[in-house]
Design a protein around this nucleic acid. Structure first.
Lengths: 165, 165
DNA sequence: CCGTTAAAGCAATGAAATTTGCATTTAAGG
DNA sequence: CCTTAAATGCAAATTTCATTGCTTTAACGG
C-alpha cells in the first residue's frame, strides 16, 4: 500500500496484492479503513525513526523531512483521523504505539529544554510543522520545495525563542 | 448536508433529503464527492464573508473564527483536497470562484501592507492559521478552546512583524 | 500420530451503490 | 399553443463491497 490516492484501495485489491483471500482480511480487520490504518502505522513506525543529530534544530528538521516524505506516500493522517477513537484492540494498540513514538519527540524537546535552549511544545510542533506539511501535501501535492520542512522548523524555533524573551 | 462525519452521505440520503431521485443526482454530478464538493463550496461562499473590521488583526481573527466554525460543520477541505484538480466544468467554476474569494483575503493583506503594517502573505495565512485549524478539527474535533483561532492569528502577526525587523 | 482449534479459502448470498433503458415531465423558444 | 431538448423519475439490471456457511489447512499440545 503505497502512494496516497483519493480513495483507499479495495479489499479485493489488497487481497490480490498480498495473495490472500479477501474474506480473511474482512474477518481479521473488519473493513479496509482499519486495515489501512494499521498498515500505515506499521510503515510509519518502521520508516520514521526519531533523528538524533545532537541539535534540536537538526533533530526537528530531520523529523520534518521524514514526515514530509511519509505524508507524500502514506494515507496515515487521513486514516488516523478517521480511526483515532477506535476501540478495536489491535488498532488501539497500534495507535497507542504511535503515540508512544510521539513521546520520543517529547523527550527530544525535554532534553533541549533541560539544556536551556528555547523549546517549542509538542503541540507547537504539530501546529507549526506537521499541520502545514499535511495541508501542503493535500492541496499542492508532494513537497517539492527544497528546504520547505526546514523553513517550517525555523519558524517553529523562532517562535520558541520569542517565548523566552 | 451539515456536520462532518467520517463518510460522505450516500446519494440515496441526499436525494431523500432533497426530495429528488438519486438517478438525477448521478446524472448531474456523477458521484457523491463532486456533489459534496460543490455543495460545500456554495455553503462556504455563503457563510464565509470576508470580515471588514478596519484592522488587519480584527479581519484575520474574524476570518479564522469563521474558518474554525466552518471546518467544524463542513467537509469542505476534505472534498476539496480530493477534487482540487478536477476538470469537471461546474466544479471547476466553483473551485475557481472559491479561489477568487480567497483573493479577497489577499486584498485585505495588500491594504494592510499599503498602510505600512507588517503583513503576512496568503501562503502564511494558510500555513499558520488554516492548516492548524484543519488539523485540530481532524484530530481533536471541534475547536472548543476560546481564542484558539485568535492565538493562531497572533502567531501569524508576530511572525509577520519579525519579517520587517 | 491424533485430536482440537483457529485461521484461511471457496462459493454463494446479501446489501448498497451505481448504471441503464425507457417513459414522463419540464422548460425554453418560435 | 406546439415542438424540442433537457431534466427527471421509475424500475430493472449491473457492479462492487461485504457477509455467511461450509470446507480445508495449519499449528499446537498430548
Amino acid at each position: 500500500m503505497a502512494e496516497i490516492p483519493d480513495r483507499l484501495p479495495s479489499m479485493a485489491e489488497i487481497a490480490a496484492r498480498a495473495n490472500v483471500n479477501p474474506t480473511s482480511l474482512y474477518r481479521r480487520w473488519g473493513n479496509v479503513s482499519v486495515l489501512a490504518t494499521e498498515v500505515a502505522i506499521e510503515h510509519a513506525m518502521r520508516d520514521f525513526p526519531m533523528p538524533d543529530t545532537g541539535s534540536l534544530k537538526g533533530d526537528l528538521t530531520g523529523w520534518a523531512d521524514a514526515a514530509a516524505q511519509l505524508l507524500d506516500r502514506s494515507p496515515l493522517l487521513r486514516v488516523l483521523a478517521a480511526n483515532i477513537h477506535s476501540n478495536e484492540p489491535g488498532l488501539r494498540e497500534r495507535i497507542d504505539a504511535l503515540a508512544r513514538r510521539g513521546q520520543e519527540l517529547e523527550l527530544v524537546l525535554a532534553r533541549a529544554k533541560a539544556r536551556g535552549e528555547p523549546t517549542p511544545s509538542l503541540a507547537d510542533v504539530l501546529e507549526v510543522v506537521l499541520a502545514p506539511l499535511y495541508f501542503h501535501v493535500l492541496f499542492f501535492g508532494p513537497v517539492r520545495e527544497a528546504g520547505y520542512a526546514a523553513r517550517l522548523v525555523d519558524r517553529l524555533l523562532t517562535l520558541a525563542s520569542l517565548k523566552t524573551k
